[in-house]
Design a protein around this nucleic acid. Structure first.
Length: 465
DNA sequence: ATGTGC
């Protein structure tokens, strides 16, 4: 009988990865099966390749299996030495660390342009307030962990004095219709078109999260998420809502895609870091090529998480509207942790905004201040240097840890009392003093947005510390 | 941000 002739190209032909596993496999097969028919040997190798985990510990095939299960070593990509063009707004108010995080991102081979908003501060990967345009690549941590996190404001034709006069009633409404960090807001599985989204049926990773998404619909998260009643003042007589200037009752909410988005972010950033390793300082900025299967999948999953975040706000506002017995005059909503396909300098790019509000020409948005400072309803000016963006809030002045050690409960209580604000839940890390002066931040972005109105919080509900 | 930990 003829001796087995097994070559590297035979293994590559059935899908073996280039590398030392090929010589190891040939060596083992020749040693143990040199009198067998080639097609039978190849079939054995195929089976091991398909399910190597079943052959771990096998006397003959174990070593091949082990080698197949070793992570493939991919050479780390180099960063460019030159930074892509960028603009920083309100530079004097931004800590160096956040700027350096942007500089690192601007050296990615896929980076084409960037910007940093005046509320910028350091984050994980791209800084908070960071905007980055890339070509045909999406960076999961350029979007952030809380995919699709957003603001939503409903404006009601209800006199704000009514809120002052019936405070307990409004407090109870927030207690009944907002849920923080929680599960099962609804007794039965909620009906919402979001659950028809193809991502839930087509992407295995997302499919596994559907039950969690059901249970968390209409809930808010922790940290800086909130649902609040407040006073809206419309100042622009030419506003697009046809609302006469004046004061109105408003409900403002801030939250994102809960466990669904967090798990999507975690899964795809892990994939990106494995497939596209980067030098240490940039490793969290690993991207997925949009022409790959995983890149396409992330794009669908990210959009689903964004729609889910929107559905959560919709659910909260709908229940509160019902409790109020009123319909909103208008609803304004914008997300600030996302990636969009947008035209930059005449070319389609992937624009990541991580804690930055879209501010294209005439695009509406909400920029909150703090519990004791107003937030602003804004209209974008379409500033190109900002990549059509603006800040997403006042930005942190104190890190969570610093706020907890430097601030005291009594001074925070006093400040809230002085401003006539009631807060349910929350901790020192969300105290007004932990945030920058929103007026200064707004002054640093007059080229980016114009103000249509303001929102002043009156009753705020947050997660229990 | 996260039923919160490589």
């Amino acid at each position: 009988m003829a001796k087995l002739k097994l070559r590297g190209k035979d293994l590559i032909a059935i899908g073996y990865p280039q590398g030392k596993v090929i010589s190891i496999a040939i060596d083992i097969m020749l040693r143990h099966y040199k009198r067998d028919r080639k097609d039978k040997v190849v079939q054995r190798l195929k089976t091991v390749l398909k399910t190597p985990e079943k052959y771990i510990g096998d006397g003959i095939m174990g070593k091949i299996a082990e080698e197949l299960m070793q992570p493939v070593k991919v050479e780390a990509q180099k960063l460019n030495t030159q930074r892509a063009p960028f603009t920083i707004f309100g530079e004097n108010e931004i800590q160096e660390e956040a700027k350096h995080q942007l500089y690192t991102a601007l050296k990615l081979p896929v980076a084409k342009a960037g910007a940093l908003m005046p509320d910028g501060h350091s984050g994980y990967g791209l800084p908070i307030g960071g905007v980055l345009a890339t070509e045909n690549a999406v960076i999961p941590y350029g979007v952030g962990v809380d995919i699709g996190c957003r603001m939503c404001l409903s404006i009601y034709d209800i006199n704000v004095s009514y809120l002052e006069g019936h405070k307990d009633k409004y407090i109870q409404m927030l207690r009944d219709h907002s849920k923080f960090g929680g599960y099962e807001v609804h007794k039965n599985i909620p009906m919402h078109e979001i659950f028809e989204h193809k991502g839930f049926s087509e992407i295995p990773t997302v499919k596994k999260l559907k039950d969690k998404a059901f249970k968390q619909l209409g809930s808010s998260g922790g940290g800086n998420h909130f649902v609040e009643f407040g006073s809206v003042e419309i100042t622009d007589p030419d506003n697009e809502f046809d609302i006469p200037p004046g004061k109105y009752l408003g409900i403002l909410s801030h939250s994102g895609s809960r466990g669904l988005g967090a798990n999507i972010a975690k899964h795809y950033t892990k994939l990106a870091m494995k497939q596209n390793p980067l030098p240490q300082e940039a490793k969290h900025l690993a991207w997925l090529d949009l022409n790959t299967h995983d890149g396409q999948e992330y794009w669908i999953a990210m959009n689903l998480a964004g729609d889910y975040a929107s559905a959560c706000h919709d659910d909260i506002h709908r229940r509160l509207s019902k409790a109020l017995g009123s319909r909103p005059l208008t609803v304004i909503e914008n997300h600030h942790n996302f990636a969009w396909k947008e035209e930059v300098e005449g070319k389609e790019m992937i624009v990541h905004r991580k804690g930055a509000t879209p501010a294209g020409k005439n695009v509406l948005g909400i920029i909150p201040g703090s519990m004791t400072a107003p937030g602003f309803i804004v209209r974008g000016k379409g500033n190109e240097a900002s990549l059509n963006s603006a800040s997403h809030g006042a930005g942190r002045r104190l890190s969570r840890r610093k706020a907890k050690t430097m601030l005291t409960g009594s001074e925070v209580k006093k400040m809230l009392r002085d401003h006539g604000v009631t807060v349910l839940g929350g901790g020192l890390d969300e105290a007004p003093m932990a945030y920058k002066d929103i007026h200064k931040v707004m002054a640093n972005q007059t080229e980016l947005v114009e103000v249509i109105g303001m929102f002043t919080p009156k009753i705020v509900r947050m997660d229990k510390n």
